[in-house]
Design a protein around this nucleic acid. Structure first.
Lengths: 356, 356
DNA sequence: CTGAAAGCGCTTACAG
DNA sequence: CTGAAAGCGCTTACAG
């Protein structure tokens, strides 16, 4: 027994109930004509079109999106799937914004979904959000967050087009058979370190946790620059840091106790740079007068520092846009070869590097 | 050149093409029976169900979500509409997370959309995102960001259920005929200021831009506490600040030049507190030894400070959850009276308040 | 240019 | 319990 929809008073007030048939009757035409007007088909006479548009306006008719989508065989909705992040960090939030902005400019929509999974569970045991279990609701997926091989395999198993934000892909090796967009970790620190060298620095350290593959790539970029100039690399990674502040304290200690003491430090990311900055200040060490500092990511922390942090800027919105663009290309050309686009980073000179 | 997934073999591999009719044929039953199994109707015999499930598995069948939704007359998708924010600030990002988390626990989905509009344009001129122009795609809206009266009227005009995050509603007065969820600005600063008084402070200033209604409410809470204890309120608002750092500099100046000098400052939000902290430090004024500081919002900045900021915590995820919950109630009970839920805040004691 | 009809992939009374 | 049929709100050949 289906319950009748609400009280009779609301019948006129709720335009949702008006269907294409009502409009056809009101305009005295067939339903096909209404559809043609809605889809701005050229084969409708001016007068008919005007009559139909007037009827649509008068009845407050809005076509049912679901019904259209069934026939169109495309929902024009993509899913932004954030995996294994307990909170939507500004970095990913801005990727999402880039996705949304590009998507909406093309009349597409973005569904936001979250997934938590263990990297150690077999692929088929990963419990995907319901939206990925159905089909027809979304056309494809933009995969962000931390991506382990099992998630990749799980997503592949549902045969839905997807694009992965590649920088936080962990533990996959060799060739990958999917579309990816990322930014250039290696060249980011390469450029930053070269800048320090140009500014006259010769004793340059690197502080960052290289157990993350992206920090490792940044470390590699740093080492390349160091080697190029025949300098010696100095790596600083505190043991068992107990949280953010403790991490800063321990690495500051290691830096300051080194003989000779580095004049500059390249950090694995802005957060590390921030923690270091706090600790150095606390110990009365001035940035950049006594130690120059360079970050990576250009997060909010960067401009909150005083002086503001010189860092490697990542164009987060552009990453989102490019993900969306690639996904659309994939949808239109399913047989196209897979590609991995790596977007350039940009070194931003602000206040934390001293010219020696 | 990487090769895409097999071309010819994909006919069987792509489950999207399998329909309920294929399954019916494979299982040797009618399509109605497949539907009943999918909807776990109890009126299917164990053997038939088993046969159908096996066929579904074998064919990799996943039902078409759009088709189901047409019949169900409910999409179980809500739209999170972020208005007039040029970027998804962590504050709103966490509201979104709360919405998503509650929604997904109930098998609902969240569509993320952005809107930019002028507060001065007539309501009917506001160009809503396409998803709000169709019907059937979403069941309702959660409205976040800065909300002016014209947007409210525009949303009301499309007759779609919605819930507004109320703290950033601007310029509406009197009774509001819609559902709202917000947090308690007034009691937040009331509690924070009382805490300062308990700690022995008698000269307490308030720094914040009261042209924003929410900061005005926070100012009111501060004044209530001040009046309760028969103290004198001291309001600090720098003229024409030129950005974040300049704002901090100017207000620090005003605070320090006052005779007698306040021993504590309640700020309109964490950002203000952070700017103030930076400037005070720069001028060699110690927090909290010489000046105590209290923030509002409990944003990321708060824990980035050293010592970490004592502030008024807002439960952002809970706001999102409550929005989603109210929207669902509204959907199930369209005739229910409108309500405005105001969630409590919580004062978090950290390191920036000195006991006198 | 336009209407009548078939059809998209489902759900759900209806009748056995 | 189950199948055949009607129907959800659209789009799109088809035939004039």
């Amino acid at each position: 027994m289906r319950k009748p929809r609400e009280a009779s008073a609301s019948v006129e007030a709720v335009p949702q109930k008006t269907t294409i048939r009502d409009v056809a009757r009101a305009a005295g035409v067939g339903i096909g004509t209404i559809s043609r007007v809605l889809n701005s088909s050229s084969q409708v006479s001016r007068e008919t079109r005007a009559r139909v548009l007037e009827a649509i306006r008068r009845l407050g008719f809005r076509p049912n999106a679901q019904a259209r989508r069934i026939l169109k065989r495309r929902s024009e909705i993509v899913c932004f799937l954030l995996s294994n992040r307990d909170f939507l960090h500004p970095f990913h939030a801005r990727i999402l914004q880039g996705v949304e902005s590009y998507a909406s400019s093309l009349k597409h929509h973005v569904l936001f979904a979250v997934l938590h999974y263990s990297p150690r569970v077999p692929a088929e045991k990963i419990d995907l959000p319901p939206v990925l279990q159905e089909h027809g609701l979304i056309d494809g997926i933009i995969l962000a967050g931390t991506i382990y091989p099992n998630l990749l395999r799980r997503i592949e198993s549902i045969h839905m087009p997807f694009v992965a934000f590649s920088n936080n892909v962990v533990g996959t090796d060799g060739e990958q058979h999917y579309d990816q967009v990322g930014f250039d970790d290696f060249n980011g620190t390469l450029q930053a370190t070269r800048y320090l060298i140009e500014q006259g620095h010769r004793l340059i350290g690197f502080a960052g946790d290289t157990s993350y593959p992206w920090i490792q790539r940044r470390f590699d970029g740093y080492r390349r620059a160091i080697r190029e100039s025949k300098l010696k690399s100095i790596s600083i990674l505190p043991q068992n840091p107990d949280g953010f502040v403790d991490f800063g304290r321990k690495s500051a200690l290691r830096i300051l106790s080194r003989q000779p003491r580095p004049t500059a430090v390249v950090t694995g990311n802005d957060e590390t740079a921030y923690a270091l900055w706090l600790s150095l200040r606390r110990q009365g060490v001035k940035v950049p007068e006594e130690i120059s500092l360079v970050g990576f990511d250009d997060r909010e922390e960067a401009v909150l520092m005083d002086p503001p942090l010189s860092t490697v800027r990542v164009h987060k919105e552009e990453i989102g846009e490019t993900c969306m663009k690639m996904l659309l290309e994939r949808l239109h050309h399913p047989q196209m070869a897979f590609s991995h686009r790596i977007l350039p980073t940009e070194f931003v000179v602000r206040g934390t590097v001293l010219h020696l």
